[in-house]
């Protein structure tokens, strides 16, 4: 009986987690997660870097250390080894789009969900961050 309850609750957690991830991943569909091998377009990466490090838009440096970016904050983890940490680019995008989907207590700004950045801007930021 108890085993049953545990099984059911585990199942519920798993399905709801899967559902949540599926939801937050929605805008990713146009991106191929297997684009790993393809080299990133340097123009897009540069545009992403401008958004990520500028103060008015992404302002990632407010909370994250990035390369040699000037006066970084330390609220979030340093952005390095991103390919190793996010083998699936879509997961990285989902994290930037809305980190509170995976962790409701995350202090990270939901850049996509609350429209701080457009989908296109987020795509560019993801390309840049993934090179780090």
């Amino acid at each position: 009986m108890r085993k049953m309850v545990r099984l059911v609750s585990t199942l519920v957690v798993i399905t709801s987690a899967a559902w949540l991830t599926a939801c937050s991943n929605k805008p990713v569909t146009k991106q191929e997660p297997t684009a790993m091998a393809a080299p990133a377009d340097p123009k897009i990466v540069a545009a992403g870097k401008a958004i990520a490090t500028g103060r008015s838009q992404g302002n990632c440096l407010a909370c994250h250390m990035i390369e040699d970016g000037a006066s970084p904050g330390n609220i979030g983890p340093p952005l390095l080894a991103m390919k190793a940490r996010y083998p699936d680019k879509a997961k990285l995008r989902a994290q930037i789009w809305d980190a509170t989907a995976a962790n409701p207590e995350s202090a990270m700004v939901p850049f996509g969900r609350l429209k701080v950045l457009t989908d296109d801007e987020i795509d560019k930021v993801v390309e840049y961050i993934w090179t780090l």
Binding site: L61, A62, P72, N74, I75, E105, A107, V109, V116
Partner: peptide
């Protein structure tokens, strides 16, 4: 739009740096 509460900065992340 940045989705912070007072607690996000002054409790959860007190002592850490924004820039």
């Amino acid at each position: 739009q940045l989705n912070f509460s007072c607690a996000s900065c002054h409790l959860q992340n007190t002592g850490l740096k924004v820039r």
